[in-house]
Write a protein that binds this DNA or RNA. Structure first.
Lengths: 144, 144
DNA sequence: TACAAATCCTACTAAAATACTATAATATCC
DNA sequence: GGATATTATAGTATTTTAGTAGGATTTGTA
């Protein structure tokens, strides 16, 4: 029941991008240094965000990344689902073709759905902007 | 963000125990056969539940296990926390000594706590009895 | 009392997921 | 043309998960 580093790093990455936007694209190397995360690992993570259109990239010298949209338009759920895969507590919650074959009236399904909905209700509500606001006053490198 | 088989098997095991209680202790072998789970693996799982006092055991021939308390006194949260470890979405949510050292006002901490609370609000509310009720009408081997 | 059926206990292992690391190609600004 | 970026692909070490295996111990029953 853990969010892996991949999802957490993605959040930190996006918050970092949001905080440091304005003065041109932000290079991954800078983000990696500020967040103290391997830049090669971040590369893989941001490429997912890039392909999904969450960030835009500029190649070459003075290149880097920037957010495609304002921070309040990204929810934590969007980012985590992309990087973590599903947020469901077990296979078969959100899959149409449940392995057990009987989604209807199944105790397991009811329980899973409740957990899944509870998590979603949080992560789909909290935006990047919220994370930034909560973090204000604290120094920027606070770990998510 | 998954519940592992360990936690899920523990739930199935407990529901099975609850359903088959009344006629003396229930042997693990029977549970394993009904639930189609390796009995050796179940042994490890039930030993945790046993040490925690959630079930009682009787050794020797005609021995087995039975629930220590009525099904409505076990929550899903109790069982999952025991077998899965913490249900927190990341280290440092429920630990007093957060690795980042600054629990207060940290965006990460706020987010994690929200997720953790959301999950808890579900799993601490649902009891074994609920699972049994939801499962009524369905054949018993429905997989959690 | 011997035997069978059960729990208990410890250790081992295969496979998958996680968390990176490495290398090289490509693009762009100066 | 060179420094600085992103992009793409492949490889690897570590950890976690999900079991297996073997045997010791206990206890009811014949």
């Amino acid at each position: 029941m853990r969010i892996s580093t991949k999802g957490r790093y993605a959040l930190r990455l996006m918050v970092d991008l949001a905080r440091n936007s304005g003065a041109g694209p932000v290079s991954l190397k800078d983000i990696a240094r500020r967040q103290d995360i391997s830049d090669k690992y971040l590369e893989q993570i941001i490429s997912v965000l890039n392909r999904a259109g969450y960030v835009r990239s500029l190649r070459g010298a003075q290149g880097g990344y920037f957010l495609q949209r304002p921070p309040e338009e990204y929810t934590v759920g969007m980012i985590l689902r992309l990087t973590e895969g599903s947020l469901a507590p077990a296979p078969c919650v959100d899959e149409a073709t449940a392995p057990c074959g009987r989604q209807e009236g199944c105790a397991a399904a009811v329980l899973r759905k409740k957990i899944s909905d509870a998590v979603s209700s949080v992560v789909d509500q909290v935006t990047l902007q919220d994370l930034m606001t909560w973090q204000n006053g604290i120094d920027s490198e606070c770990v998510i």
